[in-house]
């Protein structure tokens, strides 16, 4: 039920955004699962500005990462949050998100299945797709200080959940570092 509420909240925010004064940005980032297991993220962000100092960003991320001997992850998730700018261009933000995470087993020697009769055959690396709620914090700088042409450099720690896994919900931590620039 809580996921239904979160999804409804995100959609209502999106509708609000579409009818408001907004800027559209694209971004690219390093995505480090537990910091160092590498991946990348592409993002598209619609930022509604309440004032020069505060905005409500709505963001869609498409990402991929590889954690050797654990799993690879491909995800698509949407975030809604709050961003506040200081006069210097420094900004901080927090957001919640929800999306889909498709994980693939990562082991250099593959995946195997053993049949009833003991025969061994190759198996699939794919796990079932999981729900991916998340909480993301962020710090960054607006390099341009221009309302009409923002270029943001940022660092975002992200805590996300993978549900269902092992009968429960398992959690992951990642750090994203990247930049985004204004398209319009």
């Amino acid at each position: 039920m809580k996921y239904a509420y979160m999804t409804a909240l995100l959609f209502s925010c999106l509708l609000t955004h579409l009818s408001a004064q907004s800027n559209l940005k694209a971004g690219v980032a390093y995505f480090g699962h537990t910091l160092t297991h590498p991946g990348g993220v592409l993002e598209l962000e619609l930022e509604r500005e309440f004032s020069e100092r505060a905005s409500l960003p709505f963001r869609i991320d498409l990402g991929y990462y590889r954690h050797a001997r654990n799993h690879d992850g491909l995800f698509l998730d949407a975030h809604i949050g709050l961003r506040q700018y200081a006069r210097s261009g420094f900004f901080w933000e927090e957001s919640i998100g929800i999306g889909i995470l498709q994980t693939m087993l990562n082991g250099e020697d593959g995946v195997f299945e053993v049949g009833e009769d003991g025969t061994v055959r190759r198996g699939s690396v794919f796990n079932q797709p999981d729900l991916m709620p998340s909480v993301t914090l962020g710090l960054g700088w607006d390099l341009t200080h221009r309302q009409d042409r923002k270029t943001l450099l940022w660092l975002r720690p992200k805590l996300y959940w993978q549900y269902p896994q092992k009968l429960v919900s398992v959690y992951h931590v990642a750090v994203q570092a990247g930049f985004s620039w204004q398209l319009r």
Binding site: Y30, P38, E108, F112, E113, V114, G123, A177
Partner: peptide, 29 residues
């Protein structure tokens, strides 16, 4: 920030014995 980014990527390239030693595979059952 760029230096930090480089450090992260460099760190990811350093593989320990946990990622290099032995054979690693999964059993799907």
């Amino acid at each position: 920030l760029l230096l930090l980014l480089c450090a992260l990527i460099f760190g990811a390239c350093n593989k320990s014995e946990f990622l290099t030693e032995g054979d690693y595979f999964h059993l799907d059952h």
